[in-house]
Simulated assay, not measured.
Amino acid sequence: MEPYTGRDRYETAAKIAEGLFTDGENKLVGAGVGLASGTNFPDALAGTSMLMLYAQPLLLTNPTSLSSHTKVFLQNHAGDVTDPEGNPDAFLDVLGGTGAVSSSTANAAMIAFS
């Protein structure tokens, strides 16, 4: 197994997501991604079991601004998941509410993933 290391926790989370949650065509294997604060662990810890149930990776971000590594991952995988009619149908599960990840950060993530 190859190590997944980045310069910080945000890059490391994106590398883990890329390495373990994409298929041979570099598409997401689950129905979306989870997003949590990279500065406080309880929401990420609690949300991981739900994310694993749906094969969704956990990405981390600064609470008040979208991490650049997270943004790139979301942009690279926008449109990977589609519904039976071919419409984009990916989920972005923001963990911890606006106290953990600000509304503007969550909106920036949703725009990047759209």
Rank of each mutant, 00 (worst) to 15 (best):
S49Q: 10
K71N: 12
N40A: 14
A55H: 08
T98K: 04
K27I: 09
S67K: 03
P42D: 01
L95M: 03
V101K: 00
P57W: 09
V29M: 14
D43V: 01
T70H: 00
T39W: 06
N26Q: 12
Q75D: 11
Y54N: 13
P63T: 12
N76Q: 15
S103L: 13
S67D: 15
L51K: 03
N26V: 07
Q56D: 02
V29N: 08
L66F: 12
L59W: 04
N26G: 09
T64S: 15
G79T: 02
L92W: 00
Q56T: 05
V94D: 00
Q75Y: 04
D43Q: 01
D93L: 10
Y54E: 11
N87V: 06
S49T: 14
L53K: 13
D89P: 03
A55N: 13
K71T: 11
T82H: 10
N26R: 12
S102I: 09
D83L: 01
G79W: 11
P84Y: 07
A46R: 08
G47C: 02
G99L: 14
Q75N: 11
N76K: 13
D89W: 07
K27D: 06
P57E: 03
H69W: 08
E85G: 04
P42W: 03
P57L: 07
D43C: 00
V29E: 13
L58G: 13
D89T: 03
D93V: 11
L60Q: 03
K27W: 10
V72N: 06
N87Y: 12
T82D: 06
A100E: 15
P88K: 06
A78V: 04
A100C: 10
T82P: 05
L28K: 09
D43A: 03
T98L: 02
V29R: 14
F73G: 01
V72E: 12
L66G: 11
V72R: 13
G79Y: 01
S37Y: 11
P88C: 01
N62R: 09
S103W: 09
P42E: 09
V72C: 02
A31I: 12
D43F: 04
K27L: 14
L59Q: 02
L58Y: 11
T70M: 07
P84H: 05
D83G: 12
A78G: 04
T61E: 06
N76V: 11
T98M: 04
G79F: 02
L66R: 00
S37N: 15
T98H: 05
T82C: 14
N26L: 07
G99S: 13
M52L: 08
L58V: 13
S103H: 12
S102F: 13
A100K: 10
L95P: 03
D89G: 05
K71S: 15
D89E: 04
T82N: 14
D43I: 01
T48P: 00
L92A: 05
V29T: 15
L35H: 05
A78H: 00
L51M: 00
H69C: 04
L60E: 01
G47P: 00
H77P: 03
P42H: 08
D43T: 00
F91P: 00
N26A: 13
G79Q: 06
G99I: 12
E25A: 15
L58D: 11
G34C: 06
F91A: 09
S103M: 10
L53T: 14
T70L: 07
Y54L: 06
A36K: 07
M50Q: 09
L45S: 12
L45T: 09
E25Y: 07
L51Y: 04
P42S: 12
M52A: 08
L28G: 11
L92Q: 02
G97L: 08
T82L: 14
